[in-house]
């Protein structure tokens, strides 16, 4: 496996968010969008500042003007379905990223693209099972959007 093109993925996600907000604005007949709350799980390895920059650039491009983006960063944590053990991304980040990216420490990798693939690349720290759930800080989510209605 070989992954090229850093931060392009942040762009794709930002565009997905902004174009969705634009569609919601049109569908709900809103004059403007004032605020959008976004949650990022650490597992998704999305750079918060890069995402914020891209969101504001794209908002202008999509004619949304100035939107107040609130980004909530949440640490990802896991619970084993087999033995019940719990742990968090910060415990394992270094070793998993080492495995995924080698010496680069950070790269476009399967979990960055599709956080659900973490089950393929990580094992329970106690029993070694790949059968665990993500209990917090999953991927990038659009939590809420606030706007001004046209009436």
């Amino acid at each position: 496996m070989n992954f090229k093109g850093m931060a392009v993925h942040e762009y794709s996600i930002a565009e997905g968010i902004v174009s969705t907000i634009k569609k919601l604005k049109d569908a709900n007949n809103l004059i403007s969008i004032s605020e959008a709350v976004i949650q990022i799980g650490s597992l998704a390895q999305i750079d918060r500042n890069v995402l914020l920059d891209l969101l504001s650039i794209l908002s202008e491009e999509y004619g949304l003007g100035k939107v107040n983006y609130i980004i909530k960063y949440e640490e990802s944590s896991f619970e084993c379905n087999q033995c019940g053990f719990t742990w968090s991304w910060s415990h394992v980040k270094e070793s998993i990223m080492g495995e995924l990216c080698g010496e680069l420490k950070d790269c476009d990798n399967p979990v960055h693209f599709i956080p659900d693939l973490i089950n393929v690349f990580m094992k329970c720290l106690r029993c070694g099972s790949q059968d665990f759930k993500i209990v917090s800080g999953y991927d990038v989510r659009l939590i809420s959007v606030k706007g001004v209605r046209n009436d």
Partner: peptide, 29 residues
């Protein structure tokens, strides 16, 4: 070796015999 290439909007399928293919195999080997 299958290369995942990120492009604007996501990632590109690979091309095999002029057919575009997207498969989880590209991510998990």
């Amino acid at each position: 070796e299958l290369v995942i290439e990120s492009v604007r909007g996501g990632f590109k399928p690979i091309e095999l015999h002029r057919i575009k293919v997207m498969s989880l195999r590209m991510f998990v080997g």
